[in-house]
């Protein structure tokens, strides 16, 4: 078990270093950082001096090392555009993105598993037929279109929910600004969360349905029925647990995508999150923010993958190899 975690940690570090390399190359290849820092009147000599002072003439490997070392402590430098520390910028906007991602992720998982199980067990009735049809729309419509449609129906026509922003927010602790505790904050969250989670929900639902149908055909389900176990025990105790093994992986990876691809939803709903920040930074070639965002998303994926592997371990006893080896 410990060896397993250590191995995964080493892999994670390698992944992060690779991403750091890509992020670092942004500085070198997306324009000259000096040019974006100084004004028109700066002389060539002054520029050369600044270049030397910033260490930009050092060998590649030295620069990369100092980038990694500073990144590890959370220091990504100063935003070219906003002249604030990048980490501060990201941290101030991270809660908005995380709340959105978490809520839509949970919605996607709960409804995905629920609908998936329902459509698998009640094949052929009209309700599961309609759910399947609607899910097809969810899979095929692009996110921004769903967002715009939702805004049109619920914000413009029905005027039930706000069409943009986070509503009122309050602070929890020093820097976590939450919209979950105010009524307008929660109302503002509904449309973006649906928009962001719909695709993931349909994906999870279709996966759960397919897996469930597969599992229901297995011998151990037949044997469970032959032992007279109740339908509930067979479906939810025996079938669903086996279904969840692959579903956990996909859901975990989707959680990463939800955070990473919240960019589109955040843009459509003018949600003040990290994704929106990233889009603005791309427009202004604000390389430090772009690099930091890249690293952040990579970190999210790496952490989620690690968690997924551990969950796997908890669900499927066959993976607990240490114990099996000890016995045989």
């Amino acid at each position: 078990m410990i060896a397993f975690i250590l191995r995964r940690l080493v892999q994670s570090v390698i992944v992060m270093l690779t991403v750091a390399l890509v992020a670092f190359s942004l500085f070198r290849f997306v324009g000259d950082p000096i040019a974006s820092m100084v004004g028109q009147e700066t002389t060539l000599a002054e520029r050369a001096e600044l270049r030397e002072a910033l260490g930009l003439n050092d060998p590649f490997i030295v620069q990369f090392w100092s980038f990694v070392a500073r990144a590890a402590t959370g220091d990504f430098g100063i935003s070219y555009r906003l002249q604030q520390p990048v980490m501060e910028l990201i941290l101030s906007r991270l809660p908005a993105t995380l709340e959105l991602a978490l809520v839509s992720g949970i919605l996607a998982f709960l409804f995905g598993v629920g609908f998936g199980v329902y459509t698998a067990l009640r094949r052929g009735n009209w309700l599961s037929g309609s759910i399947m049809t609607i899910s097809l729309i969810g899979v095929s419509l692009p996110t921004f279109l769903i967002g715009v449609l939702l805004i049109w129906v619920f914000a413009v026509e029905l005027q039930w929910l706000p069409s943009f922003g986070r509503g009122d927010t309050v602070y929890i602790g020093d820097w976590w600004r939450t919209g979950l505790l105010t009524e307008s904050g929660r109302a503002s969250l509904i449309l973006p969360a649906i928009t962001l989670g719909l695709y993931q929900m349909t994906l999870i639902m279709r996966l759960v349905r397919a897996e469930m149908l597969e599992v229901l055909r297995t011998d151990y389900i037949k044997f469970a029925r032959a032992r007279g176990l109740s339908n509930r025990a067979v479906h939810f105790g025996h079938a669903l647990k086996n279904t969840l093994v692959p579903v956990i992986t996909i859901t975990g990876l989707q959680m990463g995508s939800i955070i990473a691809f919240s960019i589109i939803t955040e843009t459509v709903f003018q949600w003040p999150g990290v994704g929106a920040l990233f889009i603005r930074s791309v427009q202004f070639v604000d390389v430090p923010v772009m690099a930091a965002y890249l690293m952040l998303i990579a970190l999210v994926f790496v952490v989620i993958n690690l968690v997924v592997d551990l969950l796997y371990y908890a669900v499927d006893p066959r993976l607990r190899v240490d114990r099996a080896n000890a016995r045989h």
């Binding site: 297995t218 011998d219 151990y220 037949k222 044997f223 469970a224 029925r225 032959a226 032992r227 007279g228 176990l229 109740s230 339908n231 025996h238 647990k241 086996n242 093994v245 669900v315 499927d316 006893p317 066959r318």
Partner: peptide, 25 residues
């Protein structure tokens, strides 16, 4: 019928490798 299964009529299947749920002891 479910109450009869297991209680009054038991069944043994062909393949013991797949008859048991792998996730439960």
């Amino acid at each position: 019928m479910r109450r009869i299964r297991g209680r009054r009529i038991g069944m043994v299947f062909q393949d013991p490798l797949t008859s048991l749920n792998p996730l439960y002891t």
